[in-house]
C-alpha cells in the first residue's frame, strides 16, 4: 500500500478514531493481502506512516457480495460491473476470508 494512502488513512483514523472507521478497498488481488495487513497490524515493509501502527481496521473489498449488494444497480453497472469480470473475485473473497479467520 503506497505511502500517500497510508498517510491519508492514518490521518482520518486520528481524526475520527479507528473504532469509527472501516476501509473498503477497490484494488486488484495482487496487493490485497499486504493492504489488509497494513490496515490491521501495520505496514509490514516498515516504510510507511503505518509502520508499527496497528489500527485494527475492518477491511472489505467493494466487490465482495455483501458490499456490492448495497451499491445501487445503476451505479454498479456504470462503475463496477466491468471490474467484476476483470478481477479474480473468488480469490479476493477467499483471501479476505482466510485473513479474517486468522484474525
Amino acid at each position: 500500500m503506497d505511502l500517500e494512502n497510508q498517510a491519508a488513512i492514518k490521518s482520518i483514523a486520528d481524526e475520527v478514531g479507528s473504532e469509527n472507521l472501516m476501509v473498503v478497498l477497490g484494488m486488484p488481488g495482487e496487493g490485497l493481502r499486504l493492504a489488509v495487513e497494513t490496515l490491521t497490524t501495520g505496514d509490514p515493509s516498515w516504510a510507511g506512516p503505518l509502520a508499527g501502527v496497528s489500527l485494527g481496521l475492518p477491511v472489505f473489498h467493494i466487490l465482495e457480495e455483501k458490499v456490492r449488494a448495497q451499491v445501487p444497480e445503476d451505479v454498479y453497472a456504470e462503475k463496477l460491473l466491468m471490474m467484476e469480470m476483470v478481477l479474480d473475485l473468488p480469490q479476493i473473497e477467499s483471501d479476505l476470508a482466510s485473513m479474517r479467520a486468522a484474525g
Binding site: 486488484p28 488481488g29 495482487e30 496487493g31 499486504l34 460491473l81 466491468m82 471490474m83 467484476e84 469480470m85 476483470v86
Partner: peptide, 23 residues
Amino acid sequence: MLPAGAGDVAAANYRMLAALAVM
C-alpha cells in the same frame, strides 16, 4: 511488474476490453 505486486498490466487491460464486449 508482478514481483512488485503491481499485477499484469497488459493482461488486466485485455480482460477489461473483453468485459466491455460482454457488457
